[in-house]
Design a protein around this nucleic acid. Structure first.
Length: 470
DNA sequence: CATCAGGAAGCTC
DNA sequence: GAGCTTCCTGATG
């Protein structure tokens, strides 16, 4: 019997993570990473390339074709962020076959601790040590996929991760310091754990339940044995985080929303070209994807492949990541990731609590995607638990009204019931809202498995169930 | 007195 | 039908 992930005592039926199968072999991991958008690694590979990929039809290199290519100069070239001064930038150059066009370098904010796994989701080049590489405009373009590493050094990866986790645990021990847990992302995780790609890519299915060590017959030797599920879980978590960072960076560079549904035709163009450039894919004629984001989302993988025989799969896989991230955004997970660091209160105020209700309402209602996209929330179509998490995510503004007592266990306290109720009422256009009604709604969550009673009953203290506390 | 707990009915989407 | 909202009674600290 395979072991399974221990569940929280109140996992809601609809949100249970279940016992999904995840790929276990390096070959499958590699496929997973490719689906995240990384280009095929150079030979030799850990696995044979999928046989169904046909040789690309040669694109005409006449002037008419070149004119149909997207205009790279139209992209914004944001200057390096000032709040993360130590983070270097990477100026990406287009692939050499097309460098006869006039391109402007695109500056990407690179993060120093970017995961250094070849063929990984990150489209940004890394030096062999994992630090960033700057490409001057004179440099010849290098493939975004690191060429210097060809294998996943999973042991080293896990060692680093273990050190990281130990340091985090150390922080937990420190009294009175709240440590923000690394955000998990249920939907992205689901996308990553989806093994339907095994079927699509004619891979040998390798069932493994999350948290188990059950292995099918292994022909991969010691490398396979080394990949037990908890380790894969960590890799998945890192992959998720990486994907989100990549989405964030792309949003910043292109000035587009993280939600593909919001994309205009020109946004789609920008995204297609950006993705093609990053993954060193063959150029795609502009008219093949002349549509808005909603239409793009509606395309099937086959339709992507018809439009772009070589790039279609990667583009489709990337869009899947963005679509999953869009759901994360909706769930409010994106908010905390993109939220700018707390800014000082305006001079006219002595504390955030002096803010007017209107400003409270606004700050609690429009924080999604403040980091650079165009999407605004603030809709009345928000669940109470999401709203509470919004408030909890802004301790610099709402810390006096509601705050985490135990972030890791989802325990929070309403410090000012009147204020929280008033904010909720404003958001829902319910002027008569009061704490009595709000608390009644919270109590409804007990049945639904969204919240639970705390072990020791305390006034105004509630607890989210997993995974709602994430 | 404020809060907790939960039943019941109504409203909105 | 879901997700509240509103109103209610009774219990608790």
């Amino acid at each position: 019997m395979p072991q399974t992930v221990p569940r929280s005592g109140c996992s809601p039926p609809s949100a249970s993570q279940g016992e999904r199968a995840v790929p276990t072999s390096p070959a499958d991991i590699h496929h997973l990473l490719r689906l995240l958008g990384a280009e095929s690694p150079p030979e030799p590979m850990l696995h044979s390339p999928p046989t169904h990929i046909k040789p690309p039809p040669p694109y005409p290199e006449d002037n008419n074709y070149l004119e149909r290519l997207y205009d790279f100069e139209s992209y914004p070239t944001p200057s390096p962020s000032s709040d993360e001064g130590s983070i270097p930038t990477v100026a990406l150059q287009p692939p050499s076959p097309y460098n006869s066009l006039q391109y402007s370098p695109v500056f990407i904010k690179e993060e120093p601790n970017r995961l250094s796994v070849p063929g990984f989701a990150s489209p940004y080049p890394l030096s062999p040590s994992g630090s960033c590489v700057s490409y001057s405009s004179q440099n010849q373009y290098s493939s975004p996929v690191p060429q210097h590493e060809e294998y996943i050094d999973i042991e080293e990866l896990l060692k680093e991760n273990q050190i990281l986790q130990e340091s985090v645990q150390q922080s937990y021990i420190t009294p009175k310091i709240e440590v923000e847990e690394p955000r998990d992302h249920i939907l992205l995780r689901s996308a990553l754990e989806d093994t339907s790609f095994q079927k699509r890519l004619n891979l040998r299915p390798i069932p493994l339940e999350l948290g188990s060590v059950k292995m099918e017959e292994s022909n991969g030797g010691a490398a396979d044995e080394a990949l037990v599920a908890p380790d894969i879980d960590r890799v998945l978590t890192m992959a998720i985080e990486q994907s989100k960072r990549d989405v964030d960076n792309t949003c910043t560079v292109l000035g587009i929303s993280p939600d593909p549904m919001q994309w205009s035709t020109s946004d789609v163009k920008a995204w297609i070209l950006f993705t093609v450039q990053h993954f060193n894919l063959p150029m795609v004629p502009a008219e093949y994807f002349a549509m808005d984001g909603a239409s793009l989302i509606a395309l099937t993988e086959d339709e992507f492949n018809q439009r772009a025989p070589q790039a279609g799969s990667t583009l489709y896989a990337q869009l899947e990541i963005w679509k999953a991230a869009r759901h994360e955004c909706w769930r409010g997970q994106w908010v905390e990731h993109e939220q700018p660091s707390p800014t000082p209160a305006p001079p006219s105020r002595t504390s955030p609590d002096d803010m007017s209700d209107d400003e409270d309402s606004e700050s609690a209602g429009t924080n999604a995607n403040q980091g650079g996209g165009k999407v605004k929330t603030g809709s009345t179509h928000i669940h109470l638990w999401q709203f509470l998490k919004e408030l909890l995510a802004s301790p610099h503004i709402h810390g006096s009204a509601i705050r985490w007592l135990d972030r890791s266990n989802g325990v929070f306290k309403i410090e000012d019931s009147v204020r929280v109720a008033r904010l909720w009422g404003k958001r829902k256009n319910r002027p008569a809202m009061n704490y009595d009604k709000l608390s009644r709604s919270i109590r409804q969550y007990y049945k639904k498995g969204i919240m639970k009673k705390t072990e020791r009953s305390q006034r105004l203290v509630y607890q989210f169930c997993h995974p709602y506390s994430l």
